[in-house]
């Protein structure tokens, strides 16, 4: 097991380095003066530009720039944004909000996705199954910002059941509606994954053998079908945590949630390159860590993987 973890961890390092290198390359090494570009349409402030050139070591060769950039990430010395605040402090402010939102979305999609998927799978071909299948396709098919506006308008504005926008404190009740919107697509996916997996396992030979042992239907479902079906679902949920944090841009924009996505969006619009790079790097890091988490979960859930190494 420990070699397995180590192997997985070592495999993540090139991914992290590659992804950050890619982002860094895109922002700082393509044709054109990156610093001038960072100001976008605004007039170039020479003092800030000089500071930025220093900060990003643009006088050094490319690989040196990149190494120094990596060092700055791991020492949390991320520099300042255009309003002069340390980027690390900005991240410390917005990340907890997005983490809260993503975890709420995860709980929502996991609970409802698994329950609905299990029922649909066990009742394959029946009315409930058919309805849920079509409904999940519709949810997957409608873009998230359309869904967001739809729910914001109906539930938030017309019905008044929830606040259409989130307060700056971003409390848990505030975040319920955005979390549902954020998790809806994955909810449909979890549902379909659970359903497919349950149907596959229902036809597995060991399930028939378990029935032949004299186990009750409930025991067979709980011990053999559900447990085995959850392996791919939990694996997906682990990876989705990273995706939800990175994918919250649209949802946060619609509901005005003061989170990572919102900050990233504003940084992109105002052309704050350093902030963009920093946020994306942290998101890549979260993605890598959540993938590591998935591997650990996978090894824990499936003994075949655990002993493979």
């Amino acid at each position: 097991m420990s070699t397995y973890i180590l192997k997985r961890f070592l495999q993540l390092i090139p991914v992290f380095l590659g992804a950050t290198l890619l982002v860094y390359f895109l922002v700082f090494s393509l044709p054109g003066d990156p610093i001038v570009a960072l100001f976008g349409d605004k007039p170039v402030n020479e003092a800030v530009a000089a500071k930025l050139r220093m900060q990003y070591h643009l006088d050094q060769p490319f690989w040196m720039q990149y190494l120094l950039y990596l060092k700055s990430i791991f020492t949390f010395d991320l520099g300042q944004d255009f309003s002069g605040r340390p980027i690390a402090a900005v991240l410390g402010e917005v990340f907890p909000v997005t983490a809260r939102l993503a975890i709420m979305a995860l709980i929502f999609e996991a609970f409802f996705g698994i329950v609905f998927g299990l029922i649909a799978g066990l009742r394959k071909g029946k009315l409930f199954d058919a309805t849920v299948l079509v409904a999940s396709l519709v949810v997957i098919g409608i873009p998230i910002f359309v869904l967001g506006f739809l729910l914001q308008f109906t539930i938030g504005v017309q019905l008044g059941w929830a606040k259409p926008t989130v307060s700056s404190a971003a409390t848990i009740p505030d975040l319920i509606l955005p979390a549902i919107v954020l998790g809806l697509g994955s909810f449909a996916y979890v549902l379909r994954l659970t359903r497919t997996s349950v149907i596959e396992n229902m036809n597995a030979d060991y399930v028939r053998t378990a029935t032949a042992k004299g186990l009750s239907r409930f025991q067979v479902v709980r011990v053999h079908i559900l447990r085995n079906s959850l392996i791919p679902v939990i694996t997906f949920l682990g990876a989705d945590l990273g995706a939800l944090m990175g994918g919250a841009i649209v949802t946060e924009g619609i509901f005005n949630v003061p989170g990572v996505g919102n900050r990233l969006y504003r940084a992109v619009l105002s052309g704050e390159g350093p902030t963009v790079v920093s946020i994306v790097t942290v998101l890549v890091l979260i993605y890598c860590l959540s993938n590591l988490l998935v591997d650990l979960l996978y090894g824990w859930l499936d003994p075949r993987i655990r002993y493979d190494s």
């Binding site: 090139p14 590659g18 890619l22």
Partner: peptide
Amino acid sequence: ARINDIFFALPLILGAIVMMQLPMFR
């Protein structure tokens, strides 16, 4: 496989956002 892993770490929308703010694409 490694290149694939790297691109998977950068979701479509996130990657596109970074690309879109490049001077050559602005």
